[in-house]
Write a protein that binds this DNA or RNA. Structure first.
Length: 581
RNA sequence: CGGGAUGUGGCGCAGCUUGGUAGCGCACUUCGCUUGGGACGAAGGGGUCGCACGUUCAAAUCGUGUCAUCCCGACCA
């Protein structure tokens, strides 16, 4: 490709609306342009990158025995009603009506469609197991799109779905996909960590997320991991053992004390001169409209996803002060947040109040707890005597750095990660309600045991930028770079420089190497800046030294540059590329 | 949806307080000059100042409304 004809417009400055480096660089270097919030045009350079990522994904999926197909982007409401998700998926599902007023949606994921395909086509155990996948645009009407390609509303995803006759078969395919994913991300130049995770709206039991570890804000997930064993988990799923702390409040008897304006745990601990660990904190949540009181030790934080799962909900938020006031009134109390306790809370509107206790509170003795009276607390409380221990006891605690690994007991570390892929065991979550069955050896109809496996193609490309850049621009891994090499003749009016550059250009092309010839009538500085910004892995500069028969070969990743004869430079480049592709 | 901010050529911004019919840098076109890290000079092209209504002789500027975008919280590939 000749640079003079390449459709790309590099900018002198970063766009004002970009926050993270991949977004800034992809816009500045002319890869993408925003069309509307969370929706981007993929310009020619970007499209080349995305096709490369797609092809790596495709090759590895095919090699792993999966079969590619393509499902529609627009889906009918009926299938979503069958699976039960039409009512629970929420606003993220982009709903629309056709001219006949029939309700449709844009595909955010394809479990419903694939299950309908399977039940039509997979009638016998003899056809199983099977794994089907597609690479396609998805649309999720994210509440808050951000970070460019990392969290767009429209994005490209590879989604695969497996169908099996037993848990063992599913386990096997799950491992198979795990292996394939490890290869895929490695080939994209990314180091990933597979971490345990919550399965969220997709549902199911076992799941892992593939995280690109990053220390920037672009990593939206906190990942806990152990340096001594293989334990790692998303913060929404991580568990840990706790170091020993004081759990006996030491109060000699149970009594109600005045705690004027002492609503926060920190203040309360100071006021009563006791550790935060002997306070039982009560928080009011609303899960799918129903009230839930969460009890947890004062020094700990509730992990909302865990709490939501504990009560089997889909949406969770902390109650507003107005809701708390109302809830208190209904139960005959008058208290504000900070003085809440579980005792005597029964109903709120049409709902019974659920009380969930975190494991951390069960061991407390002579502890401090709210009693639904503003400016008062009960000290020296004990379970079963002063307060009833809730029936439902769960782990709803957010793990913190330094807590102990649940597998080996060593302190846990935390880091940030970008989720580029995930694998789920769905079981019969979709096959059962949708009556998607096959006939087994015994002649009985049984629902498929399903798994699903996603990779964010656009996100993977953006994550690669997050992982490979410097102050001058992008440093693409060779495998997914839009082009491998740029040839820069310093002065295009110099006939010798230009003829050598042209020859190298033709030679590289004939070897199947993807090369751009910067034939623009620009000063060298401009071409160098653009080359660095766009991120070609290799650059060949044809300048004055061509008088001595030498060109300059520069590696973007390392900055290393050497003078070589043109034919030797060709050889070097060719070798370097063959080594990774 | 809550809290905060911003909308002025493709990009980045000034002008708004104190109304008088739009400007700067980059990019783009032409010419000259220059050619190893985003040169310089000259001449050009391109904007209903997000949109609507209102105030006024007169609105980018003031008022009301509306839409969009971005940032902080709940989603997820």
């Amino acid at each position: 490709m000749r640079m003079s004809k390449l459709f790309v417009q590099t900018l002198r400055e970063y766009p004002s609306d970009a926050e993270v480096i991949s977004h800034k660089l992809l816009v500045k270097a002319g890869y993408i342009r925003k069309l509307t919030s969370g929706v981007y045009n993929f310009l020619p350079l970007m499209w080349r990158v995305l096709k490369k990522v797609e092809n790596i994904v495709r090759e590895e999926m095919d090699a792993a025995g999966a079969q590619e197909l393509l499902m529609p982007f627009v889906q009918p409401k009926e299938l979503w009603v069958e699976s039960g998700r039409w009512d629970v998926y929420g606003k993220e599902l982009m709903r629309l009506k056709d001219r006949h007023n029939r309700e449709m949606c844009l595909g955010p994921t394809h479990e419903e469609i694939i299950t309908s395909i399977a039940r039509d086509g997979l009638k016998s155990y003899k056809q199983l197991p099977v794994n089907l996948y597609q690479i396609q645009s998805k649309f999720r009407d994210e509440v808050r799109p951000r970070f460019g390609l990392l969290r767009g509303r429209e994005f490209i995803m590879k989604d695969a779905y497996s169908f099996a006759t037993s848990q063992e078969e599913l386990d096997k395919e799950y491992q198979n996909m795990w292996q394939a994913y490890t290869k895929i991300f490695k080939r994209c130049g990314l180091e990933t960590k597979a971490v345990q995770s919550d399965s969220g709206a997709i549902g199911g039991s076992v799941s892992h997320e593939f995280m690109v570890i990053t220390d920037t804000d672009a990593g939206e997930n906190d990942v806990f991991y152990c340096e001594h064993c293989d334990y790692s988990a998303n913060s929404n799923h991580a568990i840990s053992n706790l170091p020993q702390v004081t759990i006996d409040g030491g109060f000699s008897k149970a009594e109600i004390v005045d705690t004027p304006n002492v609503g926060s745990i920190e203040d309360l601990s100071k006021f009563l001169n006791c550790p935060q660990t002997v306070i039982c904190k009560a928080l009011v949540y609303i899960v799918d409209k129903a009230p839930v009181i969460a009890l947890i030790r004062g020094d700990k934080t509730v992990e909302e996803t865990k709490l939501m799962n504990a009560v089997g909900g889909l949406e969770i938020r902390i109650a507003t002060p107005a809701e708390i006031e109302e809830l208190m009134k209904e139960n005959g109390f008058n208290a504000i947040a900070g003085f809440i306790g579980p005792k005597g809370l029964k109903k709120y509107g049409e709902y019974e109040i659920k009380i969930i206790a975190d494991k951390t509170v069960t061991e407390l003795k002579n502890f401090v707890i709210g009693i639904n009276q503003t400016d008062k607390h009960l000290v020296g409380a004990n379970w079963g005597i002063d307060v009833e221990l809730p029936k439902q006891i769960e782990d709803i605690r957010l793990v913190e750095r330094g807590e102990l690994c649940p597998q080996c007991g060593k302190p846990l570390q935390v880091t940030r990660g970008i989720e580029v892929g995930n694998i789920f065991q769905l079981g019969t979550k979709y096959s059962k309600p949708m009556n998607a069955v096959y006939l087994d050896v015994d002649g009985k109809a049984k629902p498929y045991i399903m798994g699903c496996y996603g990779i964010g193609v656009t996100r993977t490309a953006a994550a690669a930028v997050e992982a490979h850049y410097d102050e001058f621009g992008i440093k693409w891994p060779i495998q997914i770079a839009p082009y491998h090499v740029v040839i820069v003749p310093v002065n295009i009016k110099d006939e010798l420089q230009m003829s050598v550059a042209e020859k190298m250009y033709e030679d590289l092309k004939s070897k199947g190497i993807e090369v751009v010839l910067d034939d623009r009538d620009e000063r060298a500085g401009v071409k160098f800046k653009d080359a660095d910004l766009i991120g070609f892995p290799f650059r060949v500069t044809v300048g004055k030294t061509i008088q001595e028969g030498l060109v300059e070969y520069k590696i973007r990743e390392t900055g290393e540059q050497i003078q070589l004869k043109p034919e030797d430079a060709l050889e070097e480049i060719s070798k370097a590329i063959k080594a990774v592709i």
